[in-house]
Simulated assay, not measured.
Amino acid sequence: MDGFKNVSVVKKANVYFGGNVVSRTVRFEDGSVKTLGFMQAGEYTFNTAEAEVMEFMSGELEVDLPDRREPLVINGECTFEVPANSSFSLRVSKPADYCCSFVKNK
């Protein structure tokens, strides 16, 4: 999906890691929430309260996920899931464009 219809966007940006990771919250009519963001090169660790589906549209990075022994290597497009109440770490070598979908009750 290249775009979203019938959504509202929160004007205030979510800014992490000194501005190296920035996202915008998108709310859907059915109550679901996604964030659209961009990561500069760097190393980041995120904690999850809810399960998440991370979709990368571009970038080069390695991701350490709680359910994998080896890092997930991404060069361009990739989608992966992150369990609720966990954390994941990323080592971004080329800027990355992403969409994070929050999954209720998973």
Rank of each mutant, 00 (worst) to 15 (best):
M1A: 06
M1G: 12
M1E: 04
K5D: 12
K5C: 02
N6V: 00
N6A: 05
N6P: 01
V7H: 09
S8N: 10
S8L: 06
V9R: 08
V9D: 03
V10H: 03
K11L: 09
K11E: 13
K12E: 14
K12M: 04
K12I: 06
A13R: 07
N14M: 01
Y16E: 09
Y16R: 05
G18V: 07
G18I: 04
G19K: 15
G19T: 11
N20G: 06
V22I: 15
R24Q: 12
R24V: 11
R24H: 08
R24E: 10
T25I: 10
V26L: 11
V26D: 05
R27L: 14
F28V: 10
E29R: 06
D30S: 08
G31T: 14
S32N: 15
V33G: 05
V33Y: 02
T35M: 11
T35E: 15
G37T: 08
F38Q: 02
M39Y: 03
A41N: 04
A41M: 02
A41V: 10
E43N: 15
Y44E: 01
Y44R: 07
F46M: 14
N47K: 14
N47W: 04
T48W: 00
T48M: 01
E50G: 04
E50S: 14
E50D: 13
A51K: 03
A51G: 05
E52T: 11
E52D: 07
E52K: 06
M54T: 12
M54W: 07
M54S: 09
F56P: 05
S58P: 11
E60N: 12
L61C: 12
E62N: 03
E62K: 07
V63P: 10
V63T: 05
L65Q: 07
P66Q: 03
P66M: 05
R68I: 09
R68E: 15
R69M: 01
E70L: 13
E70R: 13
P71T: 12
L72N: 03
L72C: 03
L72A: 05
V73L: 10
V73W: 05
I74W: 06
N75W: 00
N75I: 07
N75G: 04
N75L: 03
G76D: 03
E77W: 05
E77N: 13
C78I: 00
C78Y: 08
T79G: 07
T79Y: 02
F80D: 04
F80V: 09
E81I: 00
E81H: 07
V82L: 00
V82K: 00
V82Q: 01
P83T: 09
A84G: 12
A84T: 11
A84C: 08
N85I: 10
S87Q: 13
S87K: 13
S87F: 11
F88L: 07
F88P: 04
S89A: 14
L90P: 01
L90M: 15
R91F: 07
R91L: 10
V92P: 06
V92N: 05
S93G: 04
S93R: 12
S93A: 05
K94C: 10
K94T: 15
P95I: 11
A96V: 08
A96Q: 08
D97S: 14
D97E: 11
Y98H: 13
C99T: 15
C99A: 14
C100S: 15
C100P: 06
S101F: 15
F102M: 08
K104N: 08
K104P: 01
N105L: 02
K106C: 02
K106N: 02
